[in-house]
């Protein structure tokens, strides 16, 4: 467990105890509600996790490396952003991978595009997002996130 997860655990448990002390009744009531809400999502989340495993088998880090390192910046930025949208790689894997590429002389623009869509756009989580918030919400959020990831990547290219 990384430090952030531990911090969140501590905060959550402390708040939960506070809530219990303040009102047992309300807390149990809330637990029931949360249980039914999360219960509706858990099946999808497990499905998503196994979907990620599949995606990573067919788009391994080596492929990502070749895409990011290609010479045509515009094309590779779009492809990198698309790959970042599909995959859900943990940051501690993605940062060293992308970092080593940038160190080796790869352009910063596709690298930023990839890292940004990695967190902002979720193709595999799309079914769950659609179910919970509606199609319009999920489509709009993902499309805008993708577009702005490209913008951020281009702006980063100018700044750095």
């Amino acid at each position: 467990m990384d430090i952030f997860t531990i911090i969140f655990w501590v905060i959550a448990v402390v708040l939960f105890v506070v809530s219990l002390v303040k009102s047992k009744e309300k807390t149990f009531d809330a637990m029931k509600k949360s249980k039914s809400m999360m219960g509706g999502m858990i099946g999808e989340i497990v499905a998503i996790i196994f979907l990620i495993g599949l995606v990573l088998t067919f788009i391994p880090p080596e492929t990502i490396k070749t895409v990011l390192g290609s010479s045509n910046t515009i094309v590779s930025t779009f492809i990198s952003a698309a790959v970042g949208s599909i995959t859900l790689i943990p940051a501690f894997v993605a940062f060293p991978l992308v970092g080593s590429l940038v160190d080796a002389g790869a352009s910063i623009v596709p690298a930023v595009g990839f890292l940004t869509t990695l967190t902002m756009v979720g193709v595999v989580t799309f079914p769950l997002e659609k179910k919970e918030f509606g199609t319009k919400f999920a489509v709009t959020r993902n499309l805008f996130s993708f577009a702005f990831a490209i913008v951020i990547a281009l702006v980063m290219g100018v700044i750095i």
């Binding site: 655990w9 708040l15 249980k35 999360m38 858990i42």
Partner: peptide
Amino acid sequence: IEMLQVLPVIFLLTVVIEAL
């Protein structure tokens, strides 16, 4: 494993938000 570490926290947090 990541999910098992994160989801209980989210559960507790939603409970706390709902109750407090």
